[in-house]
Design a binder for these strands. Structure first.
Length: 868
RNA sequence: GCCGGGGUGGCGGAACUGGUAGACGCGCCGGACUCAAAAUCCGGUUCUGGAGACAGAGUGCGGGUUCGAUUCCCGCCCCCGGCACCA
């Protein structure tokens, strides 16, 4: 049967046909087959409209790992869903008047189709969207449980306030301290919000990081720093009839405290301002600007003396109390004792306002304090206390203990552990989110919605206009009788942080059809997730909240696990070159790389770039993250249509290891396309000559055959290790390409050689299958496969094929390569040394010198150390 | 500002535990095929010198440890991610 069209690689016809075959067989239902379970999960997408390269990369990584596990005989769950609530839908609504629900659902439809065209082994029967009431009702239900347990509670929080639109702004809506739509100067404002006591779990979240062997160390380090456990002391300073409580990690420096500083929101600051208009004005000034930590940390340090003094708990000395904008109300006690000699921020502040600086820790070499050169060593803990009264001469550690001990005796302080982590504020003053199930009654206060009334359904026909939450104007939503007393009451209009939605979706995938409970016994079958894959930008917040939520559900008796994700892979960003033209006023117009043609010089360097439309030059603007603002986004869909899904998948796995950023390159895609064409035609030529009827006879192979077979089995070993352990798909693909190059140079001289070629193709098709599943499936059939290539199993390594007759050993003289010798593997040291010195080029370097030492690394290297 | 990561040929990257720097791919150069081009195939390709054998230099910069450093240590520079309401 010779079908001529089958001789040409035509992914546009091939891929949909293969996909239909998989769909017909329901090939990727998680429950299919037997074997050990493997849950392979990628972070679900926000349905922003179109699939972008970052999604494409994320889901391809996940699919490669899933398919590799399927080929290992495992039962694999690879689900997909939609992180469907959030700000972009409201922005889109403002821009074109479409309700967020409509916009979101249309995007989901479109993106689902795009995902399907990429051929992922997803179990679509488990798909979920967080904007569906069947999903978010469980957010609400669980929130009520947390309220009962006291984990959820209400307190005020600070938000960005746009005074013109009279609305709360997200941090990203604050641009240079101004509201994005109105341009008005943003203010801080305190409003009531719901919080979750994540700080109750701070120690456990920190401790259980140790269990996460499969997580990158850098992510664990970031989380540990974020949680920020510090051991120190709380110290009370009397100030008139009040107490200022501070937390410090350095009670040993207490004798060096020369002033105190409180946050602008601190009760003492407010009280002092009541009788002092200047202070009140300063506090108002501190109220300006955004709430983000980066803004606060980089702003100029400002302060003002309150005129009050506090009493030093040990010396009884009066020290001034200041208001300072670098003291945060949200951390510690909102007040600090300032020790300018041993804290860089206190130092900067003291220098600026002429406050005294008192050194209380000795410095290396008996150095004394120098205003001009504040140095990090001033924060060191390895000196001894000086000028510290009874504590002088103690080490920092002993001073710490002695001072805390004395404070405890005086009831003026005690040792305490403090976390940097703050409780999680989950209230959002936005429409497009999960309603917080609370009813406000004038008589009964904030009343939880009774469980049987859940879900509180979000009306889907509202259109936000930028001036506050439209739920506040939606009478049918707002008006409801109080569940306690039955009098008219109003619903809470705040919705939940979308991080709530994404904190447990991976659990819901295990039983998405259960309308009786949040999760069921199936969670135990699949959890924890064996492999989680997503962007490094989620290293802290999402992953911390998901870990926290899992522990909350455990403590509610819903799951039995402590940690949700066994292994984590954080993928890098997708970048592309940018091109622009600048007009007379310096404004830049950005051109998409697809519209630009690059011209190269004789060495291959970039000589110039021109816009294809008009042939005139454009300026390369460097490689940047794909973004609308730089117009350097490349649409995966267009590439799938041009080259097929397999080529796009191949390139994105080949161009960089998954953890690193990936630089987009059209030429690189072409390279992937050429490889697949060669792979296809090479295999077709072999098939066209007729499939061999017998397996290879290893004993009958000549040296060329043994060499090819050794390369093949080394490749199988390497690819298995790269897919299964190292997760470096780029090197796996390189190894497959290299093996193909060997195979292409191999000339069949006998039927046994042809049987070897069959062995090679049979293995190579299976090795490449996780990356390029469609072509592999098609070629597997042509090789005579009767079941899907994904049921065919992973090729086995024949260890006997790996044995080498000779190895090349490098010979160095004083660390520089001077020659190479061939020896039998495991040759005795003496023989290797002799051969190395006998090498003609090596001999030139050792003839005139004395050999002092010879280092031999077996089967690799000889280094002859000579001296004159 | 704080926390985390990165920097290797013309380009993306490889070198896994301190042992041949540059695998694989792109680009470029040369050749074959073609009337010609495209596609395809073959060869070369870190830089400098040399016809070559070979030699010297070389992994952001400056030091250090070591027989040997892209890899370990110290000090810098630049780029990227996160900083709690973007997701």
């Amino acid at each position: 049967m010779t079908d001529l069209s089958a001789d040409i690689y035509q992914p546009a016809e091939l891929e949909p046909a293969i996909q239909q075959q998989w769909e017909r067989d329901r090939a990727y239902r998680a429950e299919r087959g037997g074997g050990e379970r493997y849950y392979c999960l990628s972070m679900f997408p926000y349905p922003s409209g179109k699939l972008h390269m970052g999604h494409m990369r994320n889901y391809t990584i996940c699919d490669v790992m899933s398919r590799y596990q399927i080929m290992q005989g495992r039962q694999v769950l690879q689900p997909m869903g939609w992180d469907a609530f959030g700000l972009p839908a409201e922005n889109a609504a403002m821009a074109n008047g479409v309700p967020p629900a409509e916009w979101t659902r249309a995007n989901i439809r479109h993106m689902r189709g795009q995902l399907k065209s990429l051929g992922f082994a997803i179990d679509w029967e488990r798909e979920l969207a967080t904007c569906d009431p069947e999903y978010y009702r469980w957010n609400q239900w669980f929130f009520l449980k947390l309220l009962e347990r006291g984990i959820a509670y209400q307190k005020t929080g600070t938000v960005n306030w746009d005074p013109v639109d009279q609305t709360v702004l997200a941090n990203e809506q604050v641009v240079d301290g101004r509201g994005w739509r109105t341009g008005a100067l943003v203010e801080k404002r305190e409003i009531p919000m719901y919080y979750l006591r994540i700080t109750d779990y701070a120690q456990e979240l920190l401790d259980s990081l140790d269990q996460l062997d499969g997580w990158p160390d850098r992510v664990k380090a970031m989380q540990a720093n974020w949680i920020g456990r510090s051991e120190g002391a709380e110290i009370d300073f009397a100030c008139e009839d009040q107490i200022i409580r501070v937390f410090t990690t350095r009670p040993d420096t207490l004798m060096g405290a020369t002033f105190m500083a409180v946050a602008a929101e601190h009760p003492l600051a407010r009280r002092a301002a009541e009788s002092n208009p200047e202070l009140a004005a300063f506090i108002r000034q501190c109220q300006k600007g955004g709430v983000s930590e980066a803004d606060i940390a980089t702003q100029e340090k400002l302060g003002m003396d309150t005129g009050l003094t506090a009493v030093h708990p040990l010396t009884g000395q009066a020290i001034p109390v200041w208001i300072a904008n670098y003291v945060l109300m949200g951390y510690g006690e909102g007040a600090i004792m300032a020790v300018p000699a041993h804290d860089e921020r206190d130092f900067e502040f003291a220098l600026k306002y002429g406050l005294p600086i008192r050194q209380v820790i000795s410095l290396p070499g008996g150095q004394t304090y120098d205003d001009q050169h504040w140095h990090e060593s001033y924060a060191a803990k390895d000196g001894v206390l000086v000028d510290s009264g009874p504590y002088t001469g103690l080490s920092c550690a002993d001073g710490f203990a002695a001072i805390v001990g004395d404070l405890e005796k005086k009831s003026a302080g005690k040792a305490r552990v403090q976390f940097r982590l703050r409780d999680w504020g989950i209230s959002r003053q936005r429409y497009w989110g999960c309603p917080i199930p609370i009813i406000h009654c004038d008589d009964c206060g904030a009343v939880p919605v009774p469980e049987e009334d859940l879900p509180v359904v979000l009306p889907e026909d509202l259109v936000p206009d930028g001036a506050g939450n439209p739920l506040k104007r939606c009478e049918t939503f707002l008006n409801v009788p109080c569940p306690k007393c039955g009098k008219p009451a109003r619903r809470e209009t705040d919705t939940m942080d979308t991080f709530v939605d994404s904190s447990w979706y991976f659990l819901r995938y295990t039983g998405p059809d259960n309308d009786k409970s949040m999760v069921d016994g199936r969670a135990a079958d699949w959890m924890p997730v064996d492999q989680y894959i997503g962007g490094i930008e989620h290293a802290i917040l999402h992953l911390l909240y998901a870990r926290f939520w899992t522990k909350l559900m455990r403590d509610e008796g819903l799951v039995k696990i402590d940690e949700p994700f066994r292994r984590l892979l954080t993928q890098g960003m997708v970048l592309a070159e940018t091109y622009y033209r600048e007009d007379a006023s310096g404004r830049r117009t950005w051109f998409n790389p697809a519209e630009v043609e690059v011209q190269r010089d004789a060495k291959g360097g970039v000589a110039s770039a021109v816009l294809m439309a008009d042939g005139r030059p454009v300026t390369p603007g460097g490689v940047e993250k794909m973004a609308k603002s730089k117009n350097n986004g490349v649409d995966p869909q267009a590439l799938v249509e041009q080259y097929g899904a397999d080529t796009v998948r191949l390139f994105s796995m080949f161009a960089a290891p998954p953890e690193q950023s990936l630089e987009w390159s059209e030429a690189g895609v072409e390279g992937g396309w050429r490889f697949l064409k060669r792979f296809w035609s090479g295999l077709q030529r072999h098939v066209a000559a007729g499939l061999p009827s017998t397996a290879v006879d290893r004993g009958a192979l000549d040296s060329r055959g043994l060499e090819l077979r050794r390369v093949l089995h080394e490749t199988i070993t390497k690819v298995g290790d790269d897919f299964g352990r190292r997760l470096t798909f780029n090197t796996a693909i390189a190894a497959i390409m290299e093996c193909c190059n060997h195979l292409g140079r191999f000339e069949a001289r006998s039927d046994n050689d042809r049987a070897l070629i069959q062995e090679c193709w049979s293995a190579l098709v299976r090795l490449i299958a996780p990356v390029t599943p469609h072509i592999a499936e098609a070629l597997w059939q042509r090789l005579g496969g009767e079941v899907s290539v994904f049921e065919a199993g992973w090729p086995e390594v024949d260890k006997s094929a790996l044995v080498r007759q000779k190895v090349t050993v490098v010979v160095q003289v004083n660390g520089k390569v001077r020659g190479r010798i061939e020896v039998a593997p495991g040759a005795p040291r003496a023989e290797v040394e002799k051969l190395a010195q006998a090498d003609a080029n090596v001999a030139r370097y050792i003839a005139e010198a004395t050999v002092r030492k010879i280092i031999v690394v077996p089967n690799k290297l000889v280094n002859i150390v000579v001296g004159t």
